[in-house]
Amino acid sequence: MLPIGVANKAEASNCSIRSVLSNVTGKWRMIIILALEDGPKRFGAIKRCIGDVTQRVLTENLRGLQRDGYLTRTVDPGPPVAVSYELTPLGHELLANLKPLVFWSAEQMNQVKTARMEYDKAHPD
């Protein structure tokens, strides 16, 4: 078994598996990584690609991904000033590992929907 168990908060904060996974498995971060698959994009293009993310949430998640080394932020002084984001080699490696999960998710959606409906029928509250 993978070393995922910890005895206390101090151990949890030092667990490499938890540290990395908690930062890349958030709803928006995985979608941002997928949005950058085809190359650099400006902030507005990423927001349009995703659709339902607020500017604040997108900004926070882009900063987090940049901090962890998954993407770079490039400022072109213009005029006009243009900021773009691009996956780093580490980001491309994450994307390569993420894509099988994305394909699997799409393939399993009908089974998940069926399971949810059955559960909701059995647990009406």
Rank of each mutant, 00 (worst) to 15 (best):
A96G: 04
L2N: 06
R67Y: 12
T114P: 03
S105D: 05
P40L: 14
I33L: 11
T74Y: 06
D52N: 12
G5C: 12
K41I: 07
P79R: 08
M1H: 01
G69C: 08
L98P: 01
I31G: 00
T72P: 00
A45Y: 11
M117V: 10
D38T: 13
I46Y: 13
R116K: 07
G26H: 00
D68Y: 06
V57Q: 12
A7N: 07
V75P: 00
D120I: 13
E107Q: 11
E107C: 09
E11W: 02
L101N: 02
Q66T: 10
D76W: 04
T88H: 01
A12P: 00
I46G: 03
V75L: 12
R48E: 15
Y85L: 09
L95V: 04
N110D: 14
L58D: 03
P3E: 15
N110H: 11
I31S: 06
G64V: 01
K9F: 15
S22G: 06
S16G: 02
S13H: 10
V102T: 02
R48H: 06
Q66F: 02
V112P: 01
T25I: 03
V112R: 10
M117T: 14
L94T: 14
R56K: 15
A106I: 15
R48G: 04
S105N: 09
R116I: 12
M1T: 12
V57D: 11
H123L: 07
M1I: 03
E118R: 10
K121F: 09
S16Y: 03
N8Q: 11
I17W: 04
K41V: 10
L87G: 03
G78N: 10
P100H: 08
R116E: 03
M109T: 14
D52W: 06
E86H: 06
L90G: 02
T72Y: 03
G26A: 02
Q108W: 08
V112C: 01
